[in-house]
Structure formats: structure tokens, C-alpha cells
Design a protein around this nucleic acid. Structure first.
Lengths: 115, 115
DNA sequence: ACGAACGGTAAGCTACGACTTACCGAGCAC
DNA sequence: GTGCTCGGTAAGTCGTAGCTTACCGTTCGT
């Protein structure tokens, strides 16, 4: 369960409107209509965005009467953050070797993949 | 100087090809042609993606003769990660209050709107 | 029961982004 | 110098993401 395809997560956050929705939901849970009131788009558009965010595991929804309350899913956000952490630390590790290499060395050697 | 518009960063990572480029660069710095060899797109396409990534502050470039080596910019990655951290912690903080105090200001429905 | 509120879905339009080929300038080797 | 490699840019095509309006089912209040 909860194997969030992080790929979908990045795609979901790639849209500024969806980031606005995420920011709204970070403050407090909201119903669809509430979100639509605070955003310059129609309610169906919000609904479509929420569907994408839900499939990406970034939000969860909960029906209450006719209302449907969406809230941020911290686990989904944490998954993306962890992936960024991986990129970050991996880059630092792998670059440490070549960091001091002035080089560009380029070494004239026909084989160099670095710098 | 680190005034990376994080908004551009999200947009940049919203494209799967650009994420592939970032993953490639996390391993080691690469020239444009090298990246194009490992990706199923043409070299000009890679060049255009690198431009977006560079403007987002996620990569830096460095000319070496006719080659132009791109490398991941840890600061840009960290900026995005920090923003995710903010979302994450803010959601946790705000939801904790709400979880124990069901009363919503706008709506007096005293029942479970949450979880 | 009826009607209103809430929200998800369908259909359609439009705009933008990702890719291509073609072209250009800049460095290095000879 | 000439020629070759590398890479950025221009111009153009095409797919798709995001938005709209219209419609429908569900749920609650009366």
C-alpha cells in the first residue's frame, strides 16, 4: 500500500495551480467548494486537480455528507522530499571526488567522462 | 546567489525527461552530448531542457573547450526540499490542532470533518 | 416526497510545451 | 589557414494538459 509513484508526484506538483491547492491544504483541510472559492478557476477544474493529487498520493479525501473534505497527505510529501534528499546527497558524494579537480582537465586523454 | 525561484524549480522537475537528466547528473557531471547519448531524444532537445534546468537553478554549466559540462546544483535541489519540508511540517502542525479540536470556525457542524 | 447544495464526469476548445530538422558560431587538431 | 566536433538557437509540427460549460448522481433539509 501507499507505494506512491513518485513520478506522479512530481508531475502533480509541476502545475502551479496544484501547488496552490497543496499550499491551501497545508493550512487546513478544505472542501472542494472552499478551494474553488479561493482559486481563480472553476470548481470542476479544482476537482480534476484534486484527482491528480489524490492519484499521486499527495492528498486524501473524506466524505462528510454532501461535502468532500481533502487534506494533505504528509507521507506523500515526505516521499518526494526523500527523493530530493537522495539526489542531493548522491550529488554531493559523487562530486566530492571531482570537486577539487580543477580541471577540466580534460586531460587531453581521449577518455574522460568527468568535468 | 541562490535566489532561485522555486516555482521554476517545480516546473522544471515536472517533466520526466528533465528528471532523467537530473538523475543522470546526480551520478556525475556530463556534457550535453553525453546526456543526449543516454536519452531517447535529440541533442537540441537536451539543450533546451538544460536551459530550463539552469534557469531554475538546478544545474550549473561550465565550458571546457568546445564541450560544455553540466552538473547538478545541490543548492537548487536543497531549496526545493526545504519547501517540501515546510509543507510537510506545516501540515503536521496545523492538522494536529484540528485533529483534537473538531470545531471549525466557518462551519459549526460539530462532527467529524476530519479523518 | 421535492428541491437545493455539493461534487464528480463528459465533451470540447485552446494554448503551451516538448520534440524535430536546419542552421549558426565557437574552439581545437591538423 | 581548413575542417571537424560540440552545442546553442530558430522555425515549425504535434500532442496533451488545463480550462470551460453542461450534465448527472448523491445527500441533506424541509
Amino acid at each position: 500500500m501507499a507505494t506512491y509513484q513518485s513520478d506522479d508526484g512530481w508531475n502533480a506538483l509541476g502545475d502551479p495551480t496544484r501547488r496552490a491547492i497543496v499550499a491551501c491544504l497545508a493550512e487546513r483541510p478544505r472542501a472542494v467548494g472552499e478551494l474553488a472559492d479561493e482559486l481563480p478557476i472553476s470548481r470542476p477544474a479544482v476537482s480534476q486537480h484534486l484527482k491528480v493529487l489524490k492519484e499521486a498520493g499527495l492528498v486524501t479525501d473524506h466524505a462528510t455528507g454532501t461535502r468532500r473534505v481533502y487534506r494533505l497527505n504528509p507521507a506523500g510529501v515526505a516521499a518526494l522530499r526523500d527523493q530530493l534528499d537522495t539526489f542531493w546527497s548522491r550529488a554531493l558524494d559523487n562530486y566530492r571526488d571531482v570537486a577539487e579537480q580543477p580541471a577540466e582537465s580534460a586531460n587531453e586523454s581521449p577518455n574522460e567522462e568527468f568535468q
